[in-house]
Amino acid sequence: MRHLREVRLLWIRTGPGALILPKEVSKISLEFHEKIEGGHRGAKKFWRTMLPRIKYRNPSVPIQITRHKNPSGPATLNIFTKPTPSSAAAAAPTTPTHSVDIKEMPELEVLAQLVSRTGAVEIQMTEEEKEQWREIEAFNKRSEADRKMVRERLEKEREDERILKLARGEITE
């Protein structure tokens, strides 16, 4: 439960990608290769780390991903917008309003592209969330120190055991 509440849900609520898209944006679609070779790493990372946050904050915006089998194929970010914010009933446009080539682009830059094209508003972390992140960091630091301590003790025990066996002649070097 701690992991769900403190790590996964906090992760999806905060961090890069926690932003509110303007109302005009009707759809976001991504297209990239199935593997990361050929400069598709950033696109994949963007999908895995930032798209969940975008989707959480903008649940009504459809997000679609197409993955092709050609490493030299395109890696694009398509943003569809409605013609005017008032006529919501207008047919969904078939051609994207913005089409960005995101090949060889790290995920944060992809996010920056999205923000600059759409004018999305980033959600700032509240003081409470910041405090939770600090707690998680402290916890991780402490667990790393504990892990080191336990490992050292175990290794020492094993070494003693080995030396003892060697002295009894049960094993030979």
Binding site: M1, I12, W47, L51, K55, P59, I65
Partner: peptide, 22 residues
Amino acid sequence: KHAEQFALVDAMQYIRAFEVGR
């Protein structure tokens, strides 16, 4: 008592975000 419980709509909002692009 220690578990956070969710309403259906809240859980669905989270789940749909985790399933993005699938």
